[in-house]
Amino acid sequence: MSNPIYLALDLPRLDAATALAQKVKGHVGGLKLGLEFFCAHGHHGVHEIAKIGLPIFLDLKLHDIPNTVAAAMQAIHVLEPAIVTVHAAGGRAMLEDAKAAAGEHTKVVAVTVLTSLDDADLARQGIAGTAHDQALRLAELAQEAGLDGIVCSGHEVGAVHRQWKNGYFVVPGLRPADGASAADQKRIVTPRAARDAGASVLVIGRPISRAADPVAAARAIEATL
């Protein structure tokens, strides 16, 4: 992949999302469509964004019983996504069924620990150890289940890459080194640090989408890689 940046197009209006994607398409390698976008615009919205000509990452974070997740995966075949997310916490059977039901050219990656969570949040959920520990445990589970890779923060991607050499690693929660606001993210790194640690895909949203000049922001981030 020549450009690992996937722009998160989590905007409530389809016309605004399309316009933004058109503006920055020369400086990103793909487009991420999450729950906000998919719930608002469904299959139609995905088809419209796909017309821009960049790979589509459907960040749906599927998490249910194995049969339901497999059926959901089959339902999005027609959208031909390059990447789809499921939650690693759904268990090995769910992960295996998700991968088996995915399209031939779709990478299935498992979300480990959300970048909005830290060690204290995990402790409140009754999960022992640190976010780093949990991400590595779930990465091992995803690898055993035959998935293509995982989603993790830049803090864990280096360690996961060392134990899963050929894995496909999606890293969100990225902020440029120019002091951009962390907002609701707790475990953040710069795009360059994540890339150097082994990230395959860099998911970047607000630092581009909410910038005064999204094209300049995307170009500046691209230049650091």
Rank of each mutant, 00 (worst) to 15 (best):
T224R: 12
L141R: 09
T18A: 14
R13Q: 15
D178I: 11
R210A: 12
H47R: 15
V86M: 04
A101H: 13
P12T: 10
I56L: 04
I76N: 01
G158E: 04
H41K: 11
A145E: 07
G91V: 04
G205F: 11
A220M: 09
A217K: 02
F38I: 07
L95M: 12
K51M: 01
H63G: 03
Q163A: 04
I150K: 08
E156H: 01
V111K: 03
C152S: 02
L141P: 05
A72Q: 15
H63L: 15
G30E: 02
I221Q: 03
I221G: 03
G146N: 02
L147W: 04
H47M: 10
H105F: 10
H63D: 01
I208D: 02
L31I: 02
G126M: 08
A75C: 12
A21F: 07
I127W: 11
R92Y: 02
K51Y: 06
M73V: 10
D213C: 05
H132S: 14
S153T: 04
Y168G: 00
V86Y: 00
K25G: 07
A102K: 01
D121S: 15
D59R: 01
V111Y: 00
M73G: 11
L138A: 06
I188T: 11
L62R: 13
A100G: 06
R137E: 04
N67K: 14
E144Q: 15
K165I: 10
V201Y: 07
S181D: 11
A72T: 07
L20I: 10
A211N: 01
G173L: 02
G173M: 02
H43G: 14
E80V: 07
A120K: 09
V78C: 12
S2C: 13
V215W: 14
L60D: 03
I150F: 03
E48Q: 07
P214A: 06
C39H: 15
V160R: 00
Q134G: 09
V151H: 00
N166K: 06
P66A: 05
L79C: 03
